[in-house]
Design a protein around this nucleic acid. Structure first.
Lengths: 233, 233
DNA sequence: TTGCAACTGTTATTAAATTAACAACTAAAA
DNA sequence: TTTTAGTTGTTAATTTAATAACAGTTGCAA
């Protein structure tokens, strides 16, 4: 099995972490560091050093015993694995607050992954640019996507429009969809789909905050009871 | 062990899915449905019916054999589990595109979880409201958070500000942080932290699109080779 | 009324992901 | 020179999550 086939079998979670490692490594590089230890990466990512070493083992990268991992080398290797050699173009459907946030946030960060177009139905937005990215009319989606060789579509429209936008993206020959709306979509075999709902994440945080609140309340009550019992003597 | 203690031990993934089930169920309720089958929920969420039934088993909910699950009952039960009885207030630090997107997207969706305040350093934003949510000066964060009993903070500032904002939130007594910036933060024990980086998700999609592209290219090459071989006869 | 198809609920199994354990090595300190 | 502290790399064990298997139930249709 060649290297490329090995990478195909990397655990999904490892793929996510590699992206995160690179993000952290790029920051370290800016700070003029040249080497980094597994426990340093681990601390940044809130995981264990073993996890880091295991991931790096899976991609076949070796560090130096007392110096750790060479940051530039590791960045390059991660790029070899997760980036597409030819580069991939991305389109954002929905140039509202979230669409614009993504563009501003993303632009120029990864040169193998570039946002090539935005789409909207609002005439005020069509024909203008956001951070250099042109906004097109939704009607022209198919032509633009094929013309600009866009392979990934990000959906940031109101939930009522999600289904029809997804349908249109699929018809345009898109290969991957990232859906940021709360309305789940269906895609045919061969189109990779990732959905993210911000409410779910917020509710998860709220749940664990609630748990913690109840735990501390229980403990306070327990202390109180013990206090009362003691004073009964 | 009482019901509440059981819920504490629910798998993390189940918690996330419960939130997603509710989201789907609320839509179904709007469509005047009153019952739903496990395979229907499963299809919406892109998971298996068994997974759904297992999750519902874990929360101790039973459906009817030929009718499926009562949607309203299930919504109420999920609310009992994941919502805080008293309600939880949320603050958003950073009223840029992403912060505003969250407010618009979220407002009024869950009555046990409400965004109570926004914070920014930009004088143009301070004192104004977005969708009814007032924007305060960052300097007053601690007072506002304590005054309004805000327990969760969402960070949507530029990455350069992430660390100092997180520090300030912790000092203000926040219980949970949701960090949407690409810069990881550190929090003390007892503060629940969730981080989400949009670039990671996009890179993941790009990776699997790349894989699929290579797979189809391989297959095309294979067909070509076979064709050549056949024509050699 | 009997059989069948379509569900649910639960246990058993498998798979994925994480963590633990530890050997091997290195550089610096004693 | 020897010891020690601190690393990496890897296998083994454990935990968590997902899937399979299937018994039990119901209502409809033959």
């Amino acid at each position: 099995m060649n290297a490329r086939d090995t990478f195909k079998q990397l655990p999904h979670k490892t793929i996510e972490r590699l992206s995160q490692y690179r993000r952290a490594l790029l920051i370290c590089l800016d700070n003029n560091k040249d080497h980094i230890f597994s426990h340093e990466i681990a601390k940044i990512q809130h995981i264990t050093p073993v996890q880091v070493r295991r991931d790096l083992m899976l991609i076949g990268y070796s560090g130096t015993l007392r110096k750790g991992y060479n940051i530039q080398e590791l960045i390059d290797l991660i790029a070899d694995i997760i980036d597409s050699e030819v580069g991939i173009n991305v389109g954002i459907v929905g140039m509202g607050n979230l669409g614009r946030a993504l563009i501003n946030y993303f632009s120029g960060k990864r040169h193998k992954l570039s946002i090539a177009a935005g789409f909207d139905v609002n005439p005020d937005k069509i024909g203008r640019t956001v951070n250099g990215i042109p906004c097109y009319e939704c009607k022209t989606m198919k032509e633009i996507i094929q013309e600009k060789n866009i392979e990934i579509g990000i959906i940031t429209v109101p939930a009522t429009q999600t289904t029809s936008v997804a349908k249109k993206l699929v018809e345009s020959g898109i290969k991957g969809i990232l859906n940021y709306t709360p309305k789940p979509v269906e895609v045919p075999e061969g189109v990779y789909l990732e959905e993210y709902d911000m409410i779910t994440t917020l509710e998860k945080v709220a749940f664990y905050v609630k748990m913690e609140n109840e735990r501390t309340a229980d403990m306070a009550r327990l202390r109180q009871d013990q206090g009362t019992a003691a004073s009964d003597f």
